[in-house]
């Protein structure tokens, strides 16, 4: 089984205030720690599980800056074999259709059975790249996969629908699957793997190296324009309880008690 797994390096903005850069078009992410996108971490694990079960090769593909190499090395430490990182600031990264076209350029011309992406990137929330990538490659796809079984030339997947309902569908390979979190239990990279990963092949390429015309994936090619970013007003009707932690606890207990909520 030859697999490509697409991973993105994203900032963890869950615990802190987000501020915008003066251009109003990007987020000041200098204070945030970055890591592999949640769902992509599960996609990496799934690709390695498949390789361990049936052999083959896993190639990591990522569009991003040099600092994302630590994430790529980590994926290789877990068992991915090699990697391509596309670094080129001419890509209209606000448009998942452009991102998908570049990812396709990193795969086309090579043999593959499976391509896995995450179902959603935690920063931009498009949930669009994987399915667009399938169309760019001209292969089948299924999105939001939380279980998969390979059987001669086909893959049977569980797609996660709303309310916990699952849809089971079967597709012919090659195919693109967008992976949902929870499909497996991502491993920690073993020490030995971390050492080996340093020796694995990581190619850094530009659009020119991939034979992609920058005009096809840049802001002129994109049919959507990011006009502005803004911080939404947090409209909260909540009563914020103040004080030292223990005072807050006591006040909340009293409120719940008086409100007959206990």
């Amino acid at each position: 089984m030859k697999t490509f797994v697409c991973i993105k390096y994203v900032p963890d903005t869950s615990e802190a205030e987000v501020k915008l850069n003066p251009d109003g078009l990007s987020v000041d992410d200098s204070r945030f720690s970055f890591d592999i996108n949640d769902a992509d971490n599960y996609a990496v694990e799934e690709s390695v599980l498949i390789k361990e079960a049936q052999g083959g090769e896993v190639t990591v593909l990522s569009i991003g800056p040099k600092k994302s190499d630590v994430m790529i090395r980590m994926a290789m430490a877990k068992g991915c074999d090699k990697a391509t990182r596309v670094e080129d600031d001419r890509i209209a990264t606000h448009d998942p259709l452009m991102v998908a076209r570049v990812l396709a350029g990193g795969i086309k011309g090579q043999e593959f059975d499976l391509v896995m992406t995450g179902c959603m990137a935690n920063d931009d929330w498009h949930m669009a790249t994987g399915v667009a990538l399938a169309e760019e490659l001209g292969v089948n796809h299924a999105s939001m996969v939380n279980k998969l079984e390979l059987q001669d030339g086909k893959v049977k997947v569980h797609r996660e629908l709303e309310g916990g309902l699952l849809e089971v569908v079967e597709l012919d390979l090659p195919a693109v699957l967008t992976i949902q979190t929870g499909i497996n239990e991502p491993r920690y990279a073993p020490i030995r793997g971390i050492r080996q990963a340093q020796k694995k092949e990581l190619n850094v390429v530009s659009l020119d190296d991939l034979g992609i015309d920058p005009a096809e994936v840049g802001t002129d090619a994109s049919q959507v324009v990011l006009e502005k970013l803004y911080i939404p007003e947090v409209e909260s009707a909540a009563e914020f309880i103040e004080g030292e932690p223990e005072e807050k606890a006591e006040k909340l207990a009293s409120i719940l008690h008086k409100g007959g909520l206990l």
């Binding site: 987000v18 920063d123 006009e227």
Partner: peptide, 14 residues
């Protein structure tokens, strides 16, 4: 909305 709802984006179609 982006970043788990902490940022909004206004996007225009060409």
């Amino acid at each position: 909305t982006l970043y788990s709802g902490k940022v909004n984006a206004l996007v225009a179609f060409k």
